[in-house]
């Protein structure tokens, strides 16, 4: 039935959009907060995915147990990189940032190939994530429903922290005006590390959750770099709501265009992004440059 298929497409689009949000929101905040253009963000996402594969296949962990592990490990790795490497480049201009992080992407691609081989990683999901569920009007896969629920819960938690907590207020203040935040006694150095770590943790979790949706192979960081950047730039860096709306918009458009005009491929998404950026270069919710 027509309505059912449209509803299912919307559902799939939202699930896809939530995943895009999870893997992109960390970059959006760090770009807005530190002005650091980190093209290696996709490598952290990939790392989260491979961690799940390694833990499940190597150590027999259940799928659900690997998700928090991915968050913790990716957050620690992110904090390490921030402290050791990225910190030195905050004032070095975006060209140097872009180059350094492209370099890291290439290194991560090579390491992933060395450790896990060049092919796709098939992942056997637990049975309850392989079912199809009826939601009255239409049927959905339980895996997508799971993504939607977990992703939605994380998004809600993130929004709550961002909007309500003292930490979130500090982050928002520092995005608005770093000098002002520093003179108000906010420890910006520590804040950067913490935010970077949380951003990487969420990205890693997104990667862990979505192995069977996005696929996992060593070229992942290059393939999804584009989607991540489009979500961030279209949403406007530093804006959590902008990023969410952009991610959902892109997710839904992508699912619809793949269903109705499969021959267009990713063209629809890129064209949409180009139109939005030409029309509003700072993104939908970004502040105009002064």
């Amino acid at each position: 039935m027509m309505i059912a298929s449209v509803l299912e497409l919307i559902f799939n689009g939202v699930a896809y959009g939530i995943v895009l949000f999870l893997i992109a929101c960390g970059l959006s905040i760090t770009m807005g907060l530190m002005g650091f253009t980190n093209l290696a963000h996709g490598s952290i996402v990939m790392f989260g995915g491979y961690l799940v594969v390694a833990l499940m296949k190597g150590f027999g962990w259940p799928f659900l147990a690997t998700i928090p592990a991915a968050f913790v490990v990716c957050a620690l790795v992110g904090a390490g990189f921030e402290r050791l490497l990225f910190r030195r480049l905050y004032s070095a201009g975006e060209l140097n940032q872009v180059l350094l992080t492209i370099g890291l992407v290439f290194i991560s691609v090579a390491i992933a190939t060395y450790l896990w081989g060049a092919g796709q990683q098939p992942l056997q999901m637990p049975a309850y994530l392989n079912a199809r569920l009826s939601l009255g009007l239409f049927e959905v896969s339980s895996y997508r429903l799971f993504l939607l629920l977990v992703g939605g819960a994380m998004t809600g938690l993130l929004a709550l922290v961002f909007e309500r907590s003292n930490l979130g207020a500090q982050v928002r203040a520092a995005v608005d005006n770093r000098q002002m935040a520093m003179s108000c006694g906010i420890n910006v150095d520590r804040l950067f590390t913490l935010v970077f770590a949380v951003g990487c943790g969420i990205a890693g979790t997104g990667g862990a959750l979505s192995v069977n949706l996005l696929g996992l192979d060593p070229s992942f960081p290059l393939r999804y770099l584009v989607f991540i950047l489009i979500v961030v730039t279209v949403g406007g860096s530093g804006s959590i709501w902008g990023t969410l709306i952009a991610a959902l918009l892109l997710g839904i458009c992508d699912v619809f265009s793949k269903y109705y005009v499969p021959e267009a491929g990713a063209f629809t998404i890129f064209a949409l992004a180009a139109v939005i950026l030409f029309w509003h270069p700072q993104g939908l919710f970004g502040r105009a440059a002064t």
Partner: peptide, 8 residues
């Protein structure tokens, strides 16, 4: 790719 990244 590894060497390229390292060089950059």
């Amino acid at each position: 790719y590894f060497w390229l990244g390292l060089i950059i």
